[in-house]
Simulated scan of single mutants.
Amino acid sequence: MKAIVDPRQARHDPKHFMANGAILQNPEQPRRVEVLQAGAEAAGCVFEAPDDHGPGPIAAVHSPEYLVFLQTIHERWMRIEGASEEVIPNIHPDNRTASYPRSAVGQAGFHQADTSCPISADTWASAYWSAQTAISGAAAILDGERAAYALSRPPGHHAFGDLAGGFCFLNNSAIAARYLAGKGLRPAILDVDVHHGNGTQGIFYRQSDVLTVSIHADPVRFYPFFWGHAHERGEGEGLGCNLNLPLPRGTGDGDYMRALKTGLERIAAFGADVIVVALGLDAYEDDPLKGLAVTTGGFAVIGGAIASFGAPVLFVQEGGYLCDGLGANLASLLEGFQAV
């Protein structure tokens, strides 16, 4: 399987993370790239560098105001006397229609949903090449590849059109899907991360040319809390083009596969001719952010089920955090896919 990665993705090295009021080490570490690349290579992937497709595909998903913010905010933040080394918000508007401030502190609160997405001097470059990795994966599908793996890091599915959150800055899966749709394909995004892809849902919620399906731990008591509930079906033109399949905490392989079957049935009904898999591996039973209990063998079954659908597939890396099983889980899923 063709695979894409760029070493500049490892330059983003976030330090700050807050959970339950405690300041902890950020789990979205650069070493994830090394571990995931080794796992993909164990499954037979051959890596190459991404092409630079320019800002256009990114700007097709994210607002220019937000992109200027991401590129300039750290330099502006460093002019604040006594500021932290990373841009971390401490105030937020109550809605997206609130007035837009000129202050760097105010704009950080407007464009960063939480404290898990600190911005350093290297964040923009890493996020940019993470997105270009996903776009290059989409280009490989357009060139006739049956499947491709985009090792995109930092991840993307919690990023809205103008809002970072949950370790995410640019929504790589959404960017890839919009790119494919722009080339005349009918993509579905299948998000298998343990957390709901709230940014992806938000981007496409009122659109009908991209289907969004997410299988995740029930957000009633799990991040991202405010999105990912079963009644969220899309609005306007997009009504019926969003499917959330929340699962009880601790769900294992069997019930997970039943949800996946439902998701693939909806993708078939949509008439999708390509699937973008937002590939979180944090549904693993021993993931540090655990919410579900998928086994290493279960990931192979997930991969096989996706392959059986019969459409070209672009895997775009999302979550899956440093633990003993991370690389093996990726290898298991990709091997399961390639065995069909």
Rank of each mutant, 00 (worst) to 15 (best):
N172R: 06
N172S: 14
N172H: 10
A174Y: 13
A174G: 03
I175C: 12
I175S: 02
A176P: 15
A176L: 13
A177I: 14
A177S: 10
R178D: 12
Y179E: 04
Y179N: 01
L180D: 07
A181G: 13
A181N: 10
G182I: 11
K183D: 15
K183T: 11
K183C: 15
G184E: 02
G184L: 12
L185V: 08
R186I: 11
P187D: 06
P187C: 04
P187N: 10
A188D: 00
A188M: 05
A188K: 08
A188V: 08
I189V: 11
I189T: 08
I189P: 07
I189L: 02
L190A: 12
V192R: 02
D193Q: 00
D193G: 05
D193E: 06
D193C: 07
V194W: 00
V194K: 10
H195F: 06
H195W: 02
H196W: 11
H196L: 04
G197S: 11
N198D: 10
N198Y: 01
N198G: 08
G199W: 10
T200C: 02
T200V: 06
T200W: 04
Q201S: 00
G202Y: 07
G202E: 10
G202T: 00
G202V: 12
I203G: 05
I203M: 09
I203L: 09
I203K: 04
I203H: 05
F204S: 03
F204E: 06
Y205Q: 07
Y205A: 09
Q207I: 12
Q207S: 14
D209H: 14
V210Q: 02
V210I: 14
V210R: 12
T212F: 14
V213Q: 07
V213C: 05
S214Q: 11
I215C: 10
H216F: 05
H216D: 05
H216A: 11
A217S: 02
A217C: 13
D218K: 04
P219T: 08
P219G: 01
P219L: 07
P219K: 03
R221E: 07
R221C: 13
R221I: 08
R221Y: 05
R221S: 09
R221A: 13
F222M: 08
F222S: 01
F222Y: 14
F222R: 08
Y223M: 07
Y223C: 06
P224K: 05
P224E: 03
F225Q: 12
F225R: 01
F226C: 11
W227H: 14
W227D: 07
W227C: 13
G228N: 01
G228M: 01
H229F: 02
H229E: 08
H229G: 01
A230I: 09
A230V: 01
A230W: 02
A230G: 12
H231M: 14
H231D: 15
H231T: 13
E232K: 01
E232N: 05
E232I: 06
E232C: 00
R233P: 00
R233K: 12
R233W: 05
G234C: 02
G234Q: 04
G234E: 01
E235N: 11
E235K: 15
G236V: 01
G236S: 04
E237D: 15
G238M: 12
G238L: 01
L239N: 07
L239Q: 15
G240R: 09
C241W: 14
C241Q: 14
C241T: 13
N242M: 06
N242C: 14
N242K: 11
L243A: 08
L243P: 09
L243E: 08
